[in-house]
């Protein structure tokens, strides 16, 4: 039995493709939540990133500029969230929802002229001899963003556990009042975390419009931003577990695709399309039930902080 001939390699590759954007977005949200802020606007920020990345790449022909613009645009939308929740102490849940509704509308509006257009994007990060190899492509055959996502998992993990800045960020998320009284700039730290989360969501959005599809359509991310949010809970706020979770979710998300390819028609395709969401609920139930009482969530998650108030 040959590896080349089987479906194993294409399946692995589609799973990695499906997992990478939710990994990127979840990694950003993890840092945001570690600082004690809950930003439910991931889906909206991803869409803003997706449309910006696509539009700028189409106009300039430079995917790198497209991606950087996407990160900037999504971080800009995250700034609105930050200003409302951190400076004006608005309700984080409501503001995050507003950001998602805003992102859906704005991206549809901005992307109107780009529907149906295609774009030349960079292929694999490695030379064709490796990237096009029938077996080795399972390791070398991906977009550079896939490798970037893996490096970022290590980097975020290292940042949170081994650096002073990471320690401060966690302190702010666990007890904003103590962090403030020691003299750490709670609001500034949270702003930076929120902007980082936005940039990561923008990068994740780009992965859809520039790598996976690659094109722009309204609501291109189809609710994956919410799965990224669930993924953070699944990983109990640990970057390494995020990686595992993202690939598990990626596998479930591509189930429909593979079932179709294999001519499997025992179950309705709609059921398979609903699987990622059902699986998310099931996983949340298992994770949350086990942690009942002693939650792994940052203690200040979602609570506003107003010094001196």
């Amino acid at each position: 039995m040959t590896v080349e001939g089987s479906l194993v390699i294409p399946i692995i590759m589609t799973v990695v493709g499906a997992a990478t954007p939710i990994l990127l977005a979840a990694l950003g949200e993890l840092v945001v939540e570690k600082s004690g802020v809950l930003n439910l606007g991931v889906e909206g920020m991803m869409l803003i990133g997706a449309v910006t990345g696509f539009a700028v790449t189409t106009v300039t022909g430079q995917p790198v500029i497209g991606i950087l613009s996407a990160m900037l645009a999504a971080a800009g939308s995250a700034f609105i969230f930050g200003f409302l929740t951190l400076t004006l102490t608005a309700n984080q849940v409501a503001t995050g929802l507003a950001l998602t509704i805003f992102g859906i509308g704005l991206s549809a509006l901005a992307g109107e002229g780009y529907v149906g257009r295609t774009v030349d994007v960079f292929g694999s990060a490695f030379p064709e001899s490796l990237a096009g190899h029938p077996v080795l492509r399972v390791i070398f055959g991906y977009s550079p963003l896939v490798y970037v996502s893996l490096i970022l998992v290590v980097a975020v993990s290292w940042f949170l556990r081994r650096t002073r800045a990471g320690l401060i960020l966690r302190a702010v998320g666990e007890s904003d009042i103590s962090a403030h009284s020691i003299g750490y700039p709670v609001i500034a730290v949270r702003y930076m975390a929120v902007l980082f989360g936005g940039a990561m969501a923008g990068l994740a959005g780009c992965f859809y419009s520039l790598v996976l599809t690659p094109m722009w359509a309204e609501q291109l991310t189809a609710g994956r931003g919410w799965i990224a949010l669930a993924l953070v809970v699944f990983a109990s706020w640990r970057p390494a577990r995020l990686l595992l979770g993202a690939y598990l979710f990626g596998a479930v998300m591509t189930l429909e695709l593979h079932a179709k390819a294999a001519g499997f028609s025992l179950v309705a395709p709609e059921f398979l399309a609903a699987m990622p969401y059902l699986a998310t609920i099931a996983v949340l139930a298992i994770i949350s039930a086990r942690k009942a009482g002693s939650s792994a969530a940052p203690a200040c998650l979602g609570k506003p902080f107003k010094p001196g108030a």
Binding site: A90, A94, I104, E112
Partner: peptide, 20 residues
Amino acid sequence: PNAATGVFQAMMLFFLLASD
């Protein structure tokens, strides 16, 4: 464009939360 409605609606919520 139709999407403009959604932008206006989201802006209402943003401004409401800000003016809170």
